[in-house]
Amino acid sequence: MSLTFAIIAAIVLTGAIGLSVLRKTVHCVLSLTIVFFGLAMLYIRLDAPFLGFALVLIYVSAVTILILFTVLLTRNREIETDVSPYSRGSIAGLIVGGSVFAGLIWMIYRAPLSRGITELESPASVKSLGERLMTEYVLPLEVIALLLTAAMIGAVIVAMKDPG
């Protein structure tokens, strides 16, 4: 483990822990953006700069802003003030999360992982990514486009005010 990785991992984990313990929802969303920044840095470190910046573009500027708008449109006073932000079954939730983590760790250390890394001549080029997207993966691309359109229309209709 190198120092850079350790720093970035610390950033990601700080954000993730922040969003699970902070009380105010807006603070949680802001610490979610820290997680995304860390993840984007990891993507860039893993020679995928296009995806790293796409992550920032999609998540930090679109999804987070959407979430923040929703937070502001749904003021919930009882959660913001004195009632505990955690649900009644939180102990059970923690146990489930912890056991999932234990299981994952067990699997990671059991798995025959290749320790080496294949050297790349250059980071994944956008051009080859686009070529693959337009030849081999053209059907998934179309399906995703359809899905996004359907989701957008659906979201608008669901969130629209009732005429009555």
């Binding site: 990601v12 984990l13 993730a16 822990i17 969003l19 699970s20 929802t25 969303v29 997680v35 979430i67 929703t70 937070v71 749904t74 919930n76 959660i79 009632v83 505990s84 932000p85 955690y86 649900s87 079954g89 939180s90 059970a92 939730g93 923690l94 489930v96 999360g97 912890g98 999932v100 983590f101 994952l104 760790i105 990671i108």
Partner: peptide
């Protein structure tokens, strides 16, 4: 794995739908 478990915990533990 840590991130995934934290996400799972957040989903199960927090009350706010967002």
């Amino acid at each position: 794995a840590l991130l995934f478990s934290l996400g799972l915990c957040v989903t199960l533990v927090r009350r706010h739908a967002i």
